[in-house]
Design a protein around this nucleic acid. Structure first.
Length: 254
DNA sequence: GTATGTTTAATACAAG
DNA sequence: CTTGTATTAAACATAC
């Protein structure tokens, strides 16, 4: 059997589903998350079959991204502007493929309504926070004309940062009202100074809105936690490929 | 305008 | 045969 090479499928359709191709692309990226255009590029770079009829398969791929719970749309960070969001794999979706083989689908990955709702709430809160941050940047650069006195103060993020009345961040999703389920990437966990061990009380017990540290830090921690969650789910890695040019099969790490 | 997302529908196909 | 999954088309909305 000839050793598969980068373009061993030639113009033939590779035996991977769109879900497998997308998972491949996402997982091959350093951050384990990619914008749509990069997913396209990963596929067309490696599989010549997909260099034609792009309208058809790209529509199908987008359908899969939206339809399947295994793909999570992560809002862009304010310091990473660009088109569209980032797509990543849900941490619990790694046993989707039997024995880690991308050729075999074990079962459809579906989140239960509660899980889906809470995840969507967190992502929506993050996106809302991003918009608030960008709105603040746009309307009030440090030395520019500050049309709205307190725009640059920390409370601006909490009260009403954007011109649209409905765009205030959903702080109820950001501020812990009580013990919420301990998940890898709740926004609660990200905004807490010490996620786990912290016998000493927080240094600012007086401030009702402890959000002054730049939001960027929280956003970066969000992505770090997300990545950590992904890696924790498959450490040691469930499957790997020997070199990135070979996709015929994957080895299951023992 | 194009690109990106979301959703519904129809069909085919494989597994059980 | 029934059930779930994969693919494709298409309508539609939203973002850039």
């Amino acid at each position: 059997m000839p050793r598969p090479t980068r373009e061993s499928y030639g113009d033939q359709k590779p035996p991977f589903s769109y879900i497998a191709l997308t998972a491949m692309a996402i997982w091959s990226s350093p951050e384990r998350m990619l914008p749509l255009s990069e997913i396209y590029r990963f596929i067309t770079d490696r599989f010549p079959y997909y260099r034609r009829n792009t309208q058809r398969w790209q529509n199908s791929l987008r359908h899969n991204l939206s339809f399947n719970d295994c793909f999570v749309k992560v809002p862009r960070r304010p310091d990473r502007p660009g088109k569209g969001a980032y797509w990543t794999l849900h941490p619990q979706a790694f046993d989707m493929f039997e024995n880690g083989s991308l050729l075999r689908r074990r079962k459809r990955f579906k989140l239960h309504k509660g899980e889906k709702d809470s995840l969507n709430a967190e992502l929506a809160a993050l996106a809302s926070f991003n918009r608030a941050f960008l709105a603040r940047q746009a309307s009030g650069p440090p030395q520019a004309s500050l049309q709205n006195g307190s725009l640059y103060s920390p409370v601006a993020l909490c009260s009403r940062p954007s011109p649209e009345p409905l765009e205030a961040p959903d702080t109820t999703a950001l501020l812990p009202a009580g013990p919420r389920p301990r998940r890898a990437f709740t926004i609660d966990a990200l905004l807490e100074p010490e996620p786990r061990r912290s016998p000493s009380p927080p240094p600012q017990p007086h401030c009702p809105m402890p959000l002054p540290p730049p939001y960027l830090l929280a956003a970066q921690r969000y992505h770090a936690e997300l990545l950590a969650g992904l890696q924790q789910s498959c450490l040691p890695p469930l499957w790997t490929w020997r070199d990135t040019s070979q996709f015929s099969h994957y080895t299951l790490n023992s």
